[in-house]
């Protein structure tokens, strides 16, 4: 492509940012490059000797490129690389570190749904799904990807300000014998022991137990 000598400064901080295995390549523009810089992206499966261009990320001016579908097999590991162009000159190809979707992704908190009676609350937790390319594709829960996945659940009594924690493996929890007419706030976190992966805690879902009949 006629790139004889690449004197443009390199893209910086080229890395994968991954959440629930939605794997997006990010980078920062070359130092002092101003506007008008375009980029192209390629990726490779580790252990396979071929770099593959990503057509949708050719001559782009944004500094990210979604490679989720190209890196969706989490039994493989990957590299990706970015090259910058400006006014007929270019930079070197700048690579990521080796990316392992299984250990290098972040996990969202679980979805929390809460219902109540006068003396109990019932909590149903749903682990996030692995990224998928289209709604028609089969959904894979992260529970299937990480069999040792557990939930840490926090229940806060808004009246007494006392917080209890539960550590559970299945996704439902009933807390009986509560005070009627009292607000309780529930939030939950996902915990995977190995590889060590913790989601943040979900936002709090508050619900009041019904008043005593």
């Amino acid at each position: 492509s006629g790139e004889l000598y690449c004197s443009l400064p390199n893209p910086r901080n080229v890395r994968f940012e991954s959440v629930n295995m939605k794997n997006v390549l990010h980078w920062s523009a070359p130092e002092g490059s101003g506007d008008g810089v375009l980029y192209k992206v390629k990726y490779a499966v580790y252990g396979v000797g071929k770099w593959i261009r990503k057509p949708e990320c050719r001559n782009i001016n944004r500094t990210w490129c979604d490679l989720s579908s190209e890196t969706s097999d989490y039994e493989e590991q990957y590299y990706a690389s970015v090259k910058a162009f400006l006014n007929g000159t270019c930079s070197d190809w700048m690579e990521t570190a080796r990316f392992n979707p299984l250990t290098d992704t972040k996990i969202d908190p679980p979805m929390v749904s809460v219902s109540s009676t006068d003396k109990s609350i019932s909590i149903i937790l749903t682990a996030p799904e692995k990224w998928k390319g289209s709604p028609e594709e089969e959904s894979i829960s992260l529970l299937q990807v990480y069999p040792g996945l557990q939930y840490n659940v926090s229940v806060l009594n808004k009246k007494t300000k006392k917080r209890w924690f539960f550590s559970i493996s299945n996704n439902t929890l009933v807390v009986p014998w509560l005070e009627p007419g009292t607000a309780y706030c529930v939030s939950a976190q996902i915990h995977v022991t190995t590889p060590l992966l913790d989601s943040g805690f979900s936002k709090e879902h508050c619900i009041a137990t019904l008043k005593d009949k």
Binding site: S154, V155, K162, R163, W164, F165, F166, S167, P176, T193
Partner: peptide
């Protein structure tokens, strides 16, 4: 069997 211990843990009713 409890692993996470940094808080008040609910044992049972």
């Amino acid at each position: 069997v409890l692993k996470e211990v940094s808080s008040v843990l609910h044992l049972d009713t």
